[in-house]
Design a protein around this nucleic acid. Sequence first.
DNA 1: CAGTATCCTAGGAGATACTG
DNA 2: CAGTATCTCCTAGGATACTG
Lengths: 122, 122
Amino acid sequence: MREPLRRDMFEDPDCSSQLQPFRFGDKWSGRMLRCLEDGPRRFSELRVPLHRVTPKVLTETLRAMERNGSLTRTAYDENPPRVEYGLTALGRSVLGPMDAACEWARAHLPELAEARDAYERG
Amino acid sequence: MREPLRRDMFEDPDCSSQLQPFRFGDKWSGRMLRCLEDGPRRFSELRVPLHRVTPKVLTETLRAMERNGSLTRTAYDENPPRVEYGLTALGRSVLGPMDAACEWARAHLPELAEARDAYERG
DNA sequence: CAGTATCCTAGGAGATACTG
DNA sequence: CAGTATCTCCTAGGATACTG
């Protein structure tokens, strides 16, 4: 809980997120859910594991998820500014089916690789 | 079982497939799994419920799914030609997590609509 | 029937630079 | 820190026409 997000969080080559057989919302939403499952995070915190996303796209992703009720944006009136993004109950509930999908991917990774190879061979 | 596929199979406005909170593979793969779950279908059969897809894209989708091991293509040496597409065990196994996703979407449809409205209002 | 072959377009996403 | 503002690019996907 509440540990800093690792920069390589989504870069394990054995991670099922690499082949993306499923997509939750747009390109980054699924990963976003993972980033927030242990509690709210700041914009700059999210940029660490999601370091391939530009601020523009990160903002777009956050706005879209806010719009569909997956997360809330809380701005604290401080200087320097502080903003936190946290999952709503609705957003958290998506983790259920997402875990099912991840579980499937993990379990079938070898079969997927084998199928691809078989197709290439002829 | 084995009933003809309805043209409006994916056009029920209450169908959770309309808002596509999840995507399985590309745009048409998820629907394709549904089309094939009751047994193999011919190219032209698939064009009925998937009548918005062009033959080119339908072919691309089928090839992609064949490549990743979700389905098999069987061509019978007849005239006129007959080709059937059927799910593999791997392809069928995807229906598990997909059902979980559909179940989630169905259960949370009202919340999703409400969240969207709330965002618009404020 | 079961596809190819061409051409074309929208929009998701990235690169880069700037700001309250 | 937490974003905007522009500009650009790529490619999934569609329109249309043709074929073994």
